[in-house]
Amino acid sequence: MRPSLFLLPTLAVVALAVACQSGNEPAAPAAVVQPAAAPVASPASADTASGTAPQAFRATGNEPGWLAQVGTDGHVGLRVEVDHGQTTYDVAAPTQGADGWAGTATDGTPVKLSIERVPCQDTMSGDSFDAKAMLTVGARQLHGCGSFSAP
């Protein structure tokens, strides 16, 4: 069908011509309204605009037992214990992303604590927590639950 092949370049030329036309005054950009997302509190700094204190986060998991803490006990960094506390990793200044914290431990091991703000129940104790947590230490991934608190 030749007419459809002819229309495609014609439409492209018309669209280009319309896009290149300029009016006397540039149009004001439309306001972009972004939906509010659930904030992930930064343990490193206070929200000075609202006057709220920074929050700490603590996550635990089972089999093998592990613990990850950010901004607890006055410590700004990320502290991780794996294998029931036998191995410890400290990340002095973790970077915070939309889904958690990440950095490199003092021994060079990459460490990431990812969180998802959905209710979570501990697989052994049945306790309820604010968020699901996934801890990645090197190539290992461990799953558990965690909660926010005041530092």
Rank of each mutant, 00 (worst) to 15 (best):
99 D>P: 02
130 D>I: 04
115 I>S: 08
130 D>H: 11
121 Q>R: 15
103 G>N: 07
141 Q>W: 00
141 Q>G: 08
102 A>R: 09
141 Q>A: 13
102 A>L: 03
116 E>F: 05
140 R>C: 05
108 G>H: 06
101 W>N: 03
122 D>W: 03
121 Q>P: 02
133 A>M: 13
129 F>D: 04
131 A>L: 07
106 T>L: 11
142 L>M: 13
127 D>I: 13
108 G>R: 02
137 V>D: 06
119 P>S: 10
130 D>R: 02
135 L>V: 06
130 D>M: 05
107 D>Y: 08
107 D>R: 00
119 P>C: 01
103 G>C: 07
116 E>P: 01
109 T>P: 01
125 S>D: 02
129 F>Y: 15
142 L>C: 05
125 S>V: 11
125 S>I: 11
103 G>Y: 08
132 K>I: 06
101 W>T: 03
99 D>Y: 00
107 D>K: 02
126 G>C: 10
120 C>L: 07
108 G>C: 01
103 G>P: 03
119 P>G: 11
115 I>T: 13
104 T>G: 04
126 G>P: 10
108 G>V: 06
105 A>T: 08
136 T>I: 12
136 T>P: 01
104 T>M: 10
104 T>A: 10
122 D>T: 10
126 G>S: 09
142 L>W: 11
118 V>H: 10
101 W>L: 00
136 T>S: 10
103 G>M: 07
138 G>E: 14
108 G>F: 02
129 F>R: 00
123 T>L: 11
139 A>D: 15
107 D>S: 06
122 D>F: 06
101 W>A: 00
116 E>W: 02
100 G>Y: 08
118 V>D: 13
140 R>Q: 15
124 M>E: 12
120 C>E: 05
133 A>R: 10
118 V>T: 15
126 G>E: 08
124 M>D: 11
132 K>V: 10
134 M>V: 12
136 T>Y: 05
107 D>Q: 08
132 K>L: 09
123 T>I: 03
125 S>P: 12
127 D>F: 13
127 D>T: 15
136 T>A: 12
138 G>H: 15
129 F>T: 06
113 L>R: 01
136 T>V: 14
122 D>G: 13
107 D>P: 05
119 P>M: 05
109 T>V: 11
111 V>M: 10
101 W>V: 00
104 T>I: 14
99 D>H: 07
140 R>D: 15
129 F>Q: 00
134 M>N: 09
124 M>A: 08
115 I>E: 05
141 Q>C: 10
140 R>P: 07
103 G>T: 04
130 D>Q: 01
102 A>M: 04
104 T>E: 13
107 D>E: 01
102 A>G: 07
120 C>G: 03
126 G>K: 02
112 K>C: 12
111 V>H: 09
132 K>W: 03
100 G>P: 04
104 T>L: 04
125 S>N: 11
113 L>K: 01
99 D>K: 12
127 D>Q: 15
139 A>R: 14
129 F>S: 06
126 G>A: 09
141 Q>H: 14
137 V>S: 03
116 E>V: 10
112 K>G: 08
111 V>Q: 07
125 S>R: 09
115 I>K: 07
107 D>F: 07
119 P>A: 13
122 D>E: 05
123 T>D: 03
127 D>E: 15
109 T>I: 07
125 S>H: 14
133 A>D: 12
112 K>N: 07
105 A>G: 04
110 P>M: 02
113 L>C: 05
140 R>A: 15
103 G>V: 04
111 V>Y: 07
140 R>T: 15
